[in-house]
Amino acid sequence: MSDLAQRRDDVVTPTQDDETRKVRYRGGGFSPKPRAFIAPIVFLVLVVIWEIGSHFGLIPPIVLPSPSEVLQALKDLVQSGLLWKHLSASLYRLIIGFTCGTILGLAAGALIGLWSYPRAALRPLVAAIFPIPKIALLPLFIIWFGIGEGSKVATILFGSFFPTVIATYGGIDAVDRSLINMGQSFNLSRWSIIRKIIFPSALPAILNGMRISASISIILLVAAEMIGAEYGIGAYVLLAGNLMSTDQLIAGVILLSILGLVVSYLISLAEQYFLRWRK
């Protein structure tokens, strides 16, 4: 009994401070928090440094014109009415090529990911053709579809098709098999499993593939418009480069950057809408 009493005395009784002390939350360290104000600040700092360097002659005008000169070139482009002509031509080619390439890529990727025979037939072809630089095929597309819009749209379509295919069947392959087995155990139909389990699980990878294919599409758009195009941002940049008008050249590059930001923003909105279940 004395040993038992001694053990009871050795036990430390928690005090009120120990019981009410809060433990710091250690989760959420890998969840990025939005900091919308940082990007504009960084952009403004870079523009100010650029303008100061141009004003004091540290940056030669022939190498890089000042932001005020680029802004004036953009203003002249708007006032002349050429901005909408170049922008509308580029948007027409980009929207048709990217949309068709994405739809075909989703269909082909779903076939490869879900069925054995299409997988055996199409996956080696995708692996063989995907590494080929698509701009190298532009002369062939010109022979097939002519120098007009067909060859340019086909180049963009071809460039956006393969990243979408790979992202689609890669996302399907990465779906947790236990979820599929659970759906089968509940006697769900094949279409229900695809629609309710496989497609939502693969959607993050698909949207990431679309983001990559959109960037590739803009690059191919510029390259295609530099060959036999009267209007388009790529044609405008090529003409400015031939005339050594660096202010117009940088203005065209800025337009391409804005176009890329808009496309990325639209895909981000799609991610927020379709992937809201992850929050």
Rank of each mutant, 00 (worst) to 15 (best):
Leu64Met: 15
Leu64Trp: 06
Leu64Tyr: 06
Leu64Ala: 08
Pro65Gly: 08
Pro65Lys: 02
Ser66Thr: 07
Val70Met: 09
Leu71Asn: 07
Ala73Asp: 13
Leu74Gln: 05
Lys75Met: 08
Asp76Glu: 14
Val78Pro: 02
Val78Phe: 13
Gln79Val: 10
Gln79Leu: 13
Gly81Glu: 12
Leu82Lys: 10
Leu82Gln: 11
Trp84Val: 06
Trp84His: 06
Leu87Gly: 00
Leu87Tyr: 13
Ser88Arg: 11
Ser88Leu: 15
Ser90Gly: 06
Tyr92Ser: 12
Leu94Glu: 04
Leu94Asp: 09
Gly97Glu: 09
Gly97Tyr: 08
Gly97Asp: 06
Gly101Ser: 14
Gly101Thr: 15
Thr102Phe: 08
Ile103Trp: 06
Gly105Pro: 13
Gly105Tyr: 14
Leu106Phe: 08
Leu106Asn: 01
Ala108Ser: 07
Leu111Ala: 15
Leu111Glu: 11
Ile112Arg: 12
Ile112His: 14
Ile112Leu: 13
Ile112Ala: 12
Leu114Glu: 05
Trp115Met: 11
Ser116Tyr: 08
Ser116Asp: 07
Tyr117Pro: 07
Pro118His: 05
Arg119Ile: 03
Ala121Cys: 05
Leu122Tyr: 04
Val126Thr: 15
Val126Asn: 13
Ala127Leu: 15
Ala128Ile: 12
Ile129Glu: 02
Phe130Gly: 05
Phe130Arg: 15
Phe130Lys: 14
Ile132Pro: 06
Ile132Leu: 15
Lys134Tyr: 07
Lys134Pro: 11
Ile135Met: 03
Ala136Met: 14
Leu137Lys: 04
Leu138Ile: 15
Pro139Phe: 02
Leu140Lys: 04
Phe141His: 01
Ile142Glu: 15
Trp144Tyr: 11
Trp144Asn: 05
Gly146Tyr: 06
Ile147Pro: 14
Ile147Asn: 12
Gly148Ile: 03
Glu149Ile: 01
Glu149Ala: 04
Ser151Thr: 12
Val153Arg: 03
Ala154Trp: 04
Ala154Gln: 03
Thr155Trp: 07
Thr155Tyr: 03
Ser160Cys: 15
Phe162Leu: 12
Pro163Gln: 12
Pro163Trp: 13
Val165Cys: 08
Val165Ser: 02
Ile166Gly: 02
Ile166Pro: 03
Ala167Arg: 05
Tyr169Asn: 00
Tyr169Arg: 00
